[in-house]
Amino acid sequence: MSEAISKIDYREVIEYALNPLIVHTDLKILYVNAAAEAFFKGNRNDIVGASPLDIFQESSKSSIDKRIQSAYETPAEVIEETIFKLDGEIVDVELYCHPILIGNKKAIQTYITDISERKEAEKKQQLLTKQINELSATLVPLLKGIAVLPLVGEIDESCASQLFQLVPEKAKQQSVDCLIIDFSGTYQLHQVVTDYLFKLSHVLTLLGIKSIFTGIQPSHALEAANLEINQFHVPTMTTVKDALEHLGVH
């Protein structure tokens, strides 16, 4: 087995690796594999010989230099960084590097993982969470004990889930006896989302809080019918004004 392993061509192994790999020493790139060449959008002849620090922002170069120096002795921990491609595109990546020997000389092999899509998804989720927190934290009070929750835009499953968790608590904190959930500002609801929102009304009922739905669009009604939502017996009105009249407020 050891004899077979000794015959493995290391360079051929990393050349066809799916992840971008860079080999460098003394702040000089010695080799990049095919995946790295494609990732950086350039010819490897434009990359080999350059400094690995060139791909980093100025604010990161000092810490990356220190990281590289320590990696000659022991593998470095995985970190997240923002780097540049050859065409100037900025991309978020994970970096992992460890020492290797090229003949008798120490070098470093660095693995690059593109995490741009993941970071973008995280930013969207953070923005969504912020929006939902703001929405649920400001149930609009109309009269004593009566408030309205205005739903706006496209409500997706994540948004509906957070409303389901946050709204009952906020309603209790604001001493709401009746919450009007207004759908008139929404333009799309999915089946799972509709299920969440009708169950929200059920939870409010268990807490002693009456709920009324207003502004339900025909598409929302069809989703509710498909889910047999009528079991929750939620009053529905055309407008918030109609709901207030239903409550005896004129």
Rank of each mutant, 00 (worst) to 15 (best):
residue 117 E to R: 00
residue 235 P to V: 08
residue 205 T to S: 10
residue 132 I to S: 01
residue 114 D to N: 03
residue 56 F to R: 07
residue 100 I to Y: 06
residue 109 Q to L: 15
residue 3 E to W: 10
residue 208 G to C: 10
residue 64 I to L: 05
residue 132 I to A: 08
residue 124 K to G: 00
residue 216 I to Q: 03
residue 48 V to I: 06
residue 190 H to P: 00
residue 229 I to P: 10
residue 128 L to W: 00
residue 69 Q to R: 12
residue 18 L to D: 05
residue 21 L to M: 07
residue 63 S to T: 15
residue 207 L to S: 09
residue 148 V to H: 02
residue 18 L to G: 04
residue 96 Y to H: 11
residue 170 K to F: 09
residue 45 N to F: 07
residue 214 T to M: 02
residue 225 A to C: 03
residue 210 K to M: 02
residue 131 Q to F: 07
residue 222 L to R: 12
residue 58 E to A: 15
residue 208 G to R: 06
residue 16 Y to K: 14
residue 235 P to I: 08
residue 249 V to M: 04
residue 228 E to T: 05
residue 245 E to I: 00
residue 58 E to C: 10
residue 68 I to Q: 03
residue 65 D to Q: 13
residue 56 F to A: 05
residue 203 V to R: 09
residue 5 I to G: 10
residue 233 H to D: 12
residue 64 I to C: 08
residue 69 Q to A: 14
residue 169 E to W: 05
residue 94 E to G: 04
residue 88 G to D: 05
residue 210 K to I: 01
residue 12 E to N: 11
residue 94 E to H: 10
residue 200 L to D: 12
residue 95 L to K: 12
residue 207 L to F: 14
residue 135 L to C: 12
residue 97 C to T: 14
residue 180 I to F: 04
residue 60 S to G: 02
residue 189 L to F: 03
residue 164 F to A: 07
residue 190 H to W: 10
residue 12 E to L: 10
residue 138 T to C: 07
residue 222 L to Y: 06
residue 234 V to I: 14
residue 189 L to N: 04
residue 215 G to S: 09
residue 65 D to S: 13
residue 139 L to F: 04
residue 172 K to D: 08
residue 7 K to Y: 06
residue 53 L to Q: 07
residue 201 S to M: 04
residue 33 N to G: 05
residue 35 A to R: 01
residue 223 E to N: 14
residue 58 E to I: 12
residue 204 L to K: 03
residue 174 Q to W: 06
residue 83 I to Q: 08
residue 114 D to P: 00
residue 241 K to N: 08
residue 35 A to H: 05
residue 132 I to M: 10
residue 172 K to F: 12
residue 41 K to E: 09
residue 90 I to W: 10
residue 19 N to L: 07
residue 156 D to A: 11
residue 164 F to W: 11
residue 235 P to S: 08
residue 112 I to N: 01
residue 114 D to Q: 02
residue 26 D to E: 09
residue 141 P to L: 10
residue 248 G to N: 04
residue 173 Q to G: 09
residue 198 F to I: 11
residue 145 G to V: 01
residue 55 I to Q: 03
residue 4 A to W: 11
residue 231 Q to I: 14
residue 65 D to T: 07
residue 54 D to R: 13
residue 80 E to F: 06
residue 49 G to V: 00
residue 158 S to C: 01
residue 105 K to E: 15
residue 59 S to M: 09
residue 95 L to I: 15
residue 182 D to W: 14
residue 1 M to A: 06
residue 191 Q to A: 12
residue 54 D to A: 03
residue 80 E to G: 13
residue 25 T to R: 12
residue 98 H to V: 13
residue 218 P to A: 05
residue 99 P to A: 11
